[in-house]
Design a protein around this nucleic acid. Sequence first.
DNA 1: GTCTATAGAGCGATAGAC
DNA 2: GTCTATCGCTCTATAGAC
Lengths: 237, 237
Amino acid sequence: MGHPIEESAALVAEPASDTKRRLLSAAERLFAEHGFGGVSVRQLTAAAGVNLAAVNYHFGSKEGLLAAIFEQRCRPMNDERLRRLGDCVEPADHPEVLERIIAAFIAPALASSADRGGGATFTRLRAALSVEHNELARTLIARYFDATSERFVAALARALPDLSRAELFWRFHFLLGGLYYTMINPSRIAHLSGGLCDAGDVEAVLTQMVPFIAAGFRAPSLDRLSRPRARRKRSAR
Amino acid sequence: MGHPIEESAALVAEPASDTKRRLLSAAERLFAEHGFGGVSVRQLTAAAGVNLAAVNYHFGSKEGLLAAIFEQRCRPMNDERLRRLGDCVEPADHPEVLERIIAAFIAPALASSADRGGGATFTRLRAALSVEHNELARTLIARYFDATSERFVAALARALPDLSRAELFWRFHFLLGGLYYTMINPSRIAHLSGGLCDAGDVEAVLTQMVPFIAAGFRAPSLDRLSRPRARRKRSAR
DNA sequence: GTCTATAGAGCGATAGAC
DNA sequence: GTCTATCGCTCTATAGAC
C-alpha cells in the first residue's frame, strides 16, 4: 500500500493532480455503469486518458480508487441530506412533513449535479456495488451511511409514531429498493411503458416516487393494530 | 437433493443428463449470488462436480447455460403468477383485490420451492442480471416477462381506474424495485435493523411488502386530480 | 460423452528507465 | 510523475485422446 500519502484533513482542499481527477471521474462513471468487477484497470485508464500504471501509483490499487470515490462523495451527499432533513422537522405536525423527509433523502441521491452533495452517478455506483459481494464496498457503505440512515429512520419514527421499529426499517428498505432500482435499471420501465416513463428524468422520479413511498409509509401498522400496546412481531425464524 | 416432487407435471420432457441438471442447478445459484460476469466456468463446473468442458459441450457456451436457465424457469413462474392473478379478478369490487394482485406477482417470485413456479433464487438471478449490461439478459427478460408484466399492469389498471397509465407503470416499477432489492441486498436491512428484520424470511417480506406497495398504489393520482377533472367541460373520459 | 491439455486473450500489479 | 515492458495469474473456449 505504499503510495504517496494524501491524508487530506480538509476534504476537497487538495488541488489533486489532473491525472487523479480524471481517474476519479472516469472510475465513478464506469463503476456506476458496470460495477466494480465489470471494469478493468485498463478500461479505466483508457477512459481517463492516463497511463495504465496511474491507478496503482495514485491510489495503490483498484480498490484504493473505489475508496477514494467514497471519500470524495459521501460527506457532501450526507451533509446535503441532513441539511434538508433539518429543514423539515421544525413544524413536526405539518401534514406533509413525511413527504419532505422522504424527499430530503432521495433528492440528493438523484440530483445530477455533483457539486452540492447531489450524485446520481454515485448513487448508481452504490446500487451496482450492492449486488456484488465486494467486502470493501460493504465496509464503505456501513462506514459512511449508517449514521445518516439512522437519523432518517429516527425522523420517520417521529412522523409515524404508530409504526413499530421493524415496520419502519422494512419501509425504509422499500424506499431504498425503489431508489436503487431506478438508478440501476431505468431501461425496464422505459421498455414496458413504451417510452412513456423516463427514469432518467429526475423531476419525474421525484414527483412519482415521493407520494408513492409516503403513502406506503402511512399504511396502517400491522403490529400495533392487531395487538394494542404490542411490542414487536417475531419475524425471525 | 432428491426431492419427491421432482418429476411433477413434466415441465420439460427432456430427461436431461445428470451433468446437465447439476450444472443448471449450480449455475442458477452462483449466478444469483455473484451475477453472470462474477462467476467463471471453472467455478461453475467445480461447484457442480462436473468436468470443465461440460458447459461448452452441453450448452455451447456460458451464455447458452444462462439461456437454458431462463428456458427452464420462466414458464412455470409466469404460469403460477397468472394462475394466481386469475383467482383474484373475479370479485373485482372486493376491497382487497389490489393486495391479491400484488401478492400474485411477488409471492411466486419469493417462494423458495422451485417446483411449482416459485423461484427465489431465479428472482435473485434476474435482479443481479439487471445490474450488468448483459445484452443476452435484456433479451431474455423482455422475451419471457413482457407479456406477464403487461397482464399485471392491465389488472392493476382495472383495480385503480383513476390512475394514469404513466402512474401505473411508475408504481409497478417501484414494486419491482422493492422486490429486487430484497433479493439482492438482504444484508443491508439486517445490518441497519440490528437483526430485527430478516429479508430472507419469505413470510415476513410478504407481510410487510404487500400492504406497503398496495398503499402506494392507492395514493391519489396526481395526473387526474390536478388536471382535467377541475373543469367540468368533458362529460366522460 | 467425458476427460486432459492447452491455445489465445485479458487481468491486476510492479520494476525500472526517463 | 509518467511511461514501457512484463510477470504471474485467470479467463473462455476448443482440440483431440479415451
